[in-house]
Simulated scan of single mutants.
Amino acid sequence: MISPAKLQGKVAAMLPTGLGQAAWAAGTSTAEALISPAKLAALLTAPAARAVGSHALARRTSGTAANIGDTLAGSALAAANANGDGSSNLSGTWICLGYSTDTSSATRTTLWRRIS
């Protein structure tokens, strides 16, 4: 496996002619089509648990179904295991990445991603 530092070095070696090294490395150049080391590192870095961009297996606390793309306040979700057991409510806004029914805690459990 290649280390992030080694990967950054390989990407930096591909610096286009005429583009400032510091601006490109920081991801602040106007050449947005380029993937800078800073932008690449941001894509490869996993967000902390419960942070924006993180994923959670959670169940709806009410008995309503959820479909892919539905958004929901974290206060209406509880972190859960595959059986639907769990009690810790989430914060922020989450988007559903799966499907859940309204019949039981287990069937109200699916994958969610925090969007705000």
Rank of each mutant, 00 (worst) to 15 (best):
T30E: 10
S116T: 12
L34Y: 06
A42E: 01
S29Q: 09
Q8P: 00
G86N: 00
S87K: 12
A31C: 05
N67T: 13
A22V: 15
L72A: 07
T64P: 06
T64S: 11
Q21G: 04
D102Q: 12
T110K: 02
N89F: 08
A78T: 10
N83W: 08
S36H: 00
A42R: 07
L90A: 06
L19H: 05
L43C: 04
S29G: 15
R59Y: 05
T17K: 15
A49E: 08
A65G: 14
G74Q: 03
K39C: 00
R59V: 04
H55T: 14
T71P: 14
L44I: 02
Y99Q: 15
A73Y: 10
G53C: 10
T93F: 07
G98M: 14
R113Q: 13
P16W: 03
Q21D: 04
A22E: 09
V11W: 01
T103K: 12
P37F: 03
P47S: 07
R114W: 05
K6P: 00
A5Y: 14
T64G: 06
R113Y: 03
G92R: 04
E32N: 14
P37H: 06
I2G: 04
G9D: 07
L97H: 05
T107G: 01
I2W: 12
A73F: 01
T103W: 08
S116I: 09
N81M: 10
S105R: 12
P16D: 04
S87P: 06
A51S: 09
Y99A: 10
M1H: 12
R108T: 06
P37N: 02
H55C: 12
T17P: 05
T61I: 15
L57D: 08
A82Y: 10
A51R: 01
L72V: 13
T64C: 01
K6N: 13
Y99D: 11
L19C: 10
T71C: 15
T30F: 03
N83A: 15
T64M: 10
S54W: 01
V52E: 12
T101A: 04
A80C: 04
A48D: 15
L111H: 13
R108N: 10
S3I: 00
A76P: 04
K39I: 03
A76F: 04
A58I: 05
N89I: 15
